[in-house]
Computed example of a mutant assay.
Amino acid sequence: MNPHFSPVFSGARLSDQVAEQLGAEIRQGRLVPGDKLPTEARLVEQFAVSRTVVREAVARLKSLGLVASRQGSGVFVSAKLPITPLQFAPQHAASQEAVIQMVEVRRALEAEVAALAAQRRTPQDLLAIEQAVAALDAAVQSGGDGVAEDVHFHRVIAEATRNPFLIQTLQYLSQFLYGATRVTRANEARRGDFAAEVRTEHQAILHAIQASEADAARQAAAAHMGNAIGRIQSADPMFWAQEGERLAQPLVKGLRS
């Protein structure tokens, strides 16, 4: 077994991100009991982190009973893995529910926003949307969370609708939209496949708007939000314990008000 891992970025502790990726390989059966982990040097290279970070991550996996060292041989997946049911504590479930509900609101609104933008966008609007996509990609590549850039990307699409009521509605919801985006992007940053999916989905929205294809833009935006819900639903409970619950608190308060 020769797993490939994605570099980790700032946000959550680097060692936690490394441990989560390694743990996911084990829990999902891609690394099975008895398999040897890649060498420390290989993990340093793939995750683009220091040896200290890798050692902290491996120590965390040992404390969870997922791996064990064999003197002179390396680190191996434990012969008998601990049972870790994928259940959320009540507060984590509330946080997840709040984020999903806000993304459902976004799906309803932003599908139509994208369709109208495809119909009404001017060359100046298109340039602004293209620049927003480039800024988001640059932010992620430089190690940022991309939250502000993600929100800006969707805002410039809304501005292309030329519908002041729709724009004002989104502005009113911006405090919640920003909070939901913080959670979704924090979750997506922890997995390379999630981050790649998001970029592909943004490109699909952009291409439909470039081509002035309203139906395709509507479908691409709706799919993007639907997939965001799926990514939140499949987030590792460790994510909620470490970051998700804290980031979602403004939305949880909204549920209770």
Rank of each mutant, 00 (worst) to 15 (best):
K36H: 11
F5R: 02
R107Q: 12
F153Q: 03
F176W: 10
G143A: 05
Q91F: 08
P7D: 04
I26H: 00
R107A: 06
F165M: 12
R155D: 08
T169E: 08
H207W: 11
A221C: 09
I83E: 13
A117V: 07
A228H: 05
Q171T: 10
L166N: 07
A222S: 09
K253F: 04
P85D: 05
L170M: 13
Q141P: 07
A211I: 01
L14K: 14
F5P: 10
W240M: 02
A217V: 01
R185E: 10
A128T: 03
I129M: 06
A189F: 00
A189L: 14
E20Q: 15
M225Q: 11
R218A: 00
Y172W: 10
S234I: 12
S15T: 05
E243F: 00
G74A: 07
L31F: 06
A115E: 04
L43W: 02
V105M: 09
A195W: 13
D150Q: 05
Q249P: 06
D35L: 00
Q171L: 12
A208G: 08
V156N: 04
T39Y: 12
D215G: 06
S142Y: 01
R42D: 12
Q203K: 15
V53G: 11
P164V: 03
E188W: 05
Q249S: 10
R30V: 14
K80T: 14
V77F: 01
E197N: 08
L170T: 08
E40K: 03
N2S: 11
T184A: 08
S142K: 04
I232R: 02
E245G: 02
K80H: 12
E245C: 07
D150S: 08
K80S: 12
Q249D: 09
L14V: 06
A216R: 12
V252G: 09
L206S: 07
G230M: 00
P250I: 00
A134Y: 05
K80M: 14
G23S: 14
A196H: 12
Y178C: 08
R51I: 13
G29W: 00
L116K: 14
V44N: 02
L255R: 10
Q141L: 15
L247Y: 15
G72T: 11
S174K: 02
D125K: 10
A180D: 06
L43E: 01
A111E: 03
A128Q: 07
Q242M: 13
D150K: 00
H154C: 01
L86K: 11
L206W: 01
